[in-house]
């Protein structure tokens, strides 16, 4: 469990807090989406979860370990893996397999164990065939899957994706997201997805909307995405499917408000049509 307790955070030299009095609990295995406009504090929150940033006020506990305790940081970072936005800035080695090895090497694992974890992680993200390739010769989606493998090789409990799909094309985005969700199913990983694509956030069990450093909406996507006003305050819009659902309901079509994805909508409409 990750517990964020009353956290306020200021960047050095600023007077406005980047985050103000945030409290939040993330359960193991949970799928949480965090959205909000640029500058709302999403990325700051992400960096507090693995101790890249320490709270000015309040505490962040990862399975009981305090991120303010320097002695726990290696274990915290092993548990909370993070994939960043820019694929090029997070790949550190000149080949795919050496990059995956970086984390386990930092954990001080013996060479044989490192090799085993690298092989397993590359298998999991389906990049085993490309293990000797230099990262700059991969596609965007492949690069992000590689970054994912680098995190998996540390056998994390929580996976934080900080706008990890923002720079990808739709196919690359789907490729990465599918992989992440499959890993969650197989390994029971908790996924914390930071995104400003509402379609992606809609897939989560729970979503948060941040604006100006505060949580302004929180709950299951089906509820949060109905709150047009709140979303608009954060410069966000409900996904097209949610908007369509609302519009159809207003026209008297009996659709449940919980529909957020294309597949759910197609199924519900089909049921309605064939029910007649």
């Amino acid at each position: 469990m990750i517990e964020v307790q009353g956290v306020t955070f200021f960047y050095p030299g600023t007077r406005e807090p980047a985050l103000e009095n945030i409290s939040l609990t993330i359960r193991p295995g949970e799928f949480l989406a965090i959205t909000g406009p640029n500058g709302s504090g999403k990325s700051t929150l992400a960096r507090l979860l693995n101790g890249l940033l320490r709270p000015g006020k309040g505490r962040v506990l990862v399975d009981g370990l305090d991120t303010a305790d320097a002695a726990s940081l290696v274990e915290i970072r092993r548990r909370v893996g993070m994939v960043f936005q820019d694929p090029d800035n997070q790949l550190v080695a000149a080949t795919v397999e050496d990059d995956v090895a970086f984390g386990p090497e930092n954990l001080g694992l013996p060479p044989a164990a490192v090799r085993q974890r690298v092989a397993a992680a590359l298998e999991a993200v389906e990049l085993a065939d490309l293990k000797t390739r230099p990262p700059h010769r991969l596609s965007g989606g492949q690069k992000q899957r590689l970054a994912l493998a680098g995190v998996l090789a540390m056998e994390p409990v929580y996976l934080v994706l900080d706008e990890a799909t923002a720079m990808l094309d739709p196919v690359g985005r789907e490729e990465v997201l599918k992989k992440v969700l499959a890993l969650r199913r197989e390994k029971g990983l908790a996924v914390i997805l930071i995104t400003h694509f509402m379609e992606e956030a809609a897939l989560a069990e729970r979503m948060l909307v941040l604006n100006e450093g505060r949580i302004i909406l929180s709950g299951p996507p089906a509820d949060v995405l109905q709150q047009e006003e709140g979303l608009a305050k954060a410069g966000l819009k409900a996904p097209a499917i949610v908007a369509l659902g609302k519009s159809l309901r207003q026209a008297g079509v009996k659709l449940p408000a919980s529909i957020v994805t294309v597949e759910e909508m197609a199924r519900a409409l089909w049921k309605l049509a064939s029910g007649k």
Binding site: V74, P104, E105, N106, L107, G108, L109
Partner: peptide
């Protein structure tokens, strides 16, 4: 974020 803390305690594959 990938637990790098300098050369200390680091092994090599």
């Amino acid at each position: 974020a990938r637990a790098y803390r300098g050369g200390k305690g680091r092994t090599r594959m």
